[in-house]
């Protein structure tokens, strides 16, 4: 998978780059409007991470440019602007997703995965990973041939962990992902713990290895040896 990150904050770009590299994404970086435009001309990408305020121009104009050039890559807009109008505007101009700063890199990875799945593998909505098979369309999970019945939150959690497999995902990132606006409810970390506990139990009960490792005080890690196949 090839990604282009267009973001003028170099430290942020570097973080995104190194985090995504661990997920086997090949990343190109551009630090300005002009540079981004050049890279779009020469390279072909599966997904573009785009900041709105760039030196030399507005990120949204790049979206228009891509539309004219018929670039098919999925675009995630990252911006400090968090009003609904900004989001709607970004999505109307051709963004596929809109992520407000400050975000968790785990969230960004999950969304990139989701966009690439949508764009690249239309109709094939099944993720097979080790013993697990996740059907994204029906939102069903199977361990081998057995159905695992998950609640909505558990399913969302599993998908999030799979997107960030073999990486530590903090409990804050999980809480933000599961509850979005309501994540700041005092004890949402207790909920994270109880959801993880339930999910782990259901997976193990259905014959899966114990994929989810707890890292005390930090978060959780979905450990799986086999590389993901998208059937």
């Amino acid at each position: 998978m090839r990604l282009l990150i267009i973001e003028d904050e170099k430290p942020l770009t570097k973080s995104i780059h190194s985090y995504l590299l661990q997920s086997n994404f090949l990343c190109d970086t551009a630090y300005s409007y002009g540079e981004g435009k050049d890279k779009l001309e020469t390279g072909s990408y599966d997904c573009i991470v785009l900041d709105i305020t760039l030196p030399g121009g507005n990120g949204l104009d790049l979206l228009q440019h891509m539309k004219r050039r018929k670039v098919t890559a999925g675009v995630i807009i990252i911006s400090a602007r968090n009003s609904l109008d900004d989001k709607i505007n970004g999505l109307e101009k051709g963004g596929d997703d809109y992520l407000t700063k400050p975000f968790h890199l785990a969230e960004l990875t999950a969304r990139i995965n989701s966009i690439i799945r949508r764009k690249k593998f239309e109709g094939n909505n099944v993720i097979a990973l080790d013993k697990l098979t996740v059907n994204i369309l029906n939102k069903t999970v199977k361990s081998g041939e057995d159905d695992i019945h998950l609640t909505k939150k558990e399913y969302k959690l599993l998908l999030y962990l799979i997107s960030n497999r073999n990486r530590i995902v903090t409990k804050e990132a999980i809480a933000d992902h599961l509850w979005e606006d309501h994540a700041n409810l005092g004890y949402s970390f207790d909920f994270v713990y109880s959801h993880i506990k339930n999910l782990r139990k259901k997976l193990v009960d259905n014959g899966c290895p114990d994929y989810i490792k707890a890292l005390y005080g930090m978060g959780y890690k979905f450990v799986v040896e086999e590389e993901i196949r998208i059937a």
Partner: peptide, 20 residues
């Protein structure tokens, strides 16, 4: 508040990378 978001994003992303 706006300008704070970018450095916050950087700190958080650095921590995300660091804890790996």
């Amino acid at each position: 508040s706006h300008e704070l978001q970018t450095p916050l994003t950087i700190i958080r992303s650095k921590l995300d990378v660091l804890i790996q």
